[in-house]
Design a binder for these strands. Sequence first.
DNA 1: AGGACGGTTTGACTTTTGTCAATCGCCGTG
DNA 2: CACGGCGATTGACAAAAGTCAAACCGTCCT
Lengths: 319, 319
Amino acid sequence: MPIRTADQIIHKAAWLYYSHGLRQDEVARELNISRASVAMYLRKARETGIVTISASTQLFADDVLARQLEDALKLDAVWVAPDSTHSSDPTADVPLVAANVFLGLITRGARIGVAWGRTVYTIADQMAHADLQGVTVVQLCGNLGAPYSYRPDECTMEIARRLNAKGLNLYAPLVLSTEELAAALRAEPVIREQLDGIRTCDLALFSIGTVDADSHIVKCGAVDLAELDRLRAAGAAGVIAGRVIDGRGASLDCAYNRRLISTDIDSLRAIPKRLVVVQEDSKFEPLKAALAGGLCTHLVVGAGMARRLLDFARAGRET
Amino acid sequence: MPIRTADQIIHKAAWLYYSHGLRQDEVARELNISRASVAMYLRKARETGIVTISASTQLFADDVLARQLEDALKLDAVWVAPDSTHSSDPTADVPLVAANVFLGLITRGARIGVAWGRTVYTIADQMAHADLQGVTVVQLCGNLGAPYSYRPDECTMEIARRLNAKGLNLYAPLVLSTEELAAALRAEPVIREQLDGIRTCDLALFSIGTVDADSHIVKCGAVDLAELDRLRAAGAAGVIAGRVIDGRGASLDCAYNRRLISTDIDSLRAIPKRLVVVQEDSKFEPLKAALAGGLCTHLVVGAGMARRLLDFARAGRET
DNA sequence: AGGACGGTTTGACTTTTGTCAATCGCCGTG
DNA sequence: CACGGCGATTGACAAAAGTCAAACCGTCCT
């Protein structure tokens, strides 16, 4: 959709206002419309990514804690969001920082893999709009027919929408009832292609799930409590893109994982930039597992989690 | 200069205002300062690239003329700036469009080569500030001790400053009095290195000079009128980064060119993205030469020039 | 043809932001 | 220790931007 004549006026208004630096009333006079219309066009321009306003995330990367963590965990980059100490809204800063960081990591023409979860959806929701033609957003894992609004396909779509990018959805369930069916479905050309395409991504965005009773995969009905117990007994430490990982960050060898339609761990690790975002303090153990597996290159966490991680990393080094 | 504690407050204000979406008075309350200070911090944040506001240049790429030119000239991208038909200031839009396009072409960690001239300097001057750490701006040609403020080193420095990038200046004169001295100087490790580094640039920005009596190189004293006549007789068609090119876009085989400290044509062509910006209609012939030599991949011109180029390209195809 | 509907556009009003002279606080100097 | 200077900060005012109900306009349906 290259030439959308209706948008021309919005582009022009945005150009005159933001690039030429005219005032709204001057733009209005120039375009022979009322100033109120100009104000509206400018809002639309911001909302559709015709103009982009982005704040540096330098502040959070400069944080001493962040630097220490980068060092201790050998990560490419870490951002530490303040634990809403300042009296503003209780909404955590983590997803907001993550959204800004994520936008900053996207390069022209990039291929981006996104998983799902409350965190990922919140990031999508807080993310500014941008106009990144040529960017492709691919879904890392199958869908859940769950009552959640942060379904995998919704996360993918919403992020693609915000970026004005192409969204590539994975039209398959996350979990199937038998291993055979899952294998057969994975072999289907359409699905195969999508899963293979994950390796060629430049950037991945995902969070990490717990393997508790109130875990995401349990709430969504992917796993029942009996199976959860079995998984934990087998060494489950966390969940990434629906897949259960063990304490070393490897895919747990279990029936559940074999019933999945989702990225495998090696494909994920083939993506050069892997942004992991963790909000809840309860995800300490799962995060440790992911880090152990080298699944994360870029990390956004809250200050509390950052401190715990740093303590852990230093304790580990001393022994 | 990673941690500049004085800037912390600016970062924080920018973050709360632009990312959290607080109002200035809310930010002021949050940070326990007056709203006026917040307003000032925010201006600083914009001026230093802590926040970036960029308008899409889609409008100019969508121009029918631009598409036709891309096609006819086999260029990667063309932007056509309107010839200030709309009653606003007479300042041409070309450099402003170019500045926006240029910013949009810069990728993370890029190496950028810039030449010099009034056009390039005007672009630098109109360019928004950005915070692109890891970007390097290298000077494509030697310096002129001219009374101009748009000296090669100033262009490089100003662009580097706006981008918060590293500026790599070429500390040598553009033209020397003898071929021998120029050759010797080019062989100097410091200079050699800089000239070799041009090949590894990702993006180049330059304009094109004429070979008339009021040409840049004449005004700056690099060439006197007698030599100019000789160059024109020898087939000079234009000037790029101080170097005289013939009608086919090749470096003219002449004493003047051998006395230069500047990028050679092959190195320039080794840069994948070469953004050429042309303001004046008088530069039609020089631009034709540059296009013939394949020196240009991305082009920003005014509407008048665009029409002339298109007519020319089509006439050429018919014969 | 009339009319109801969805959307854009506008004028009038309110809120937010930009500006600037006056003031404060700090530091070096006589 | 008082003084002058200088940059940062503020209060108050002016300018600009945001908002919203009402008007308008094309179009589709009855």
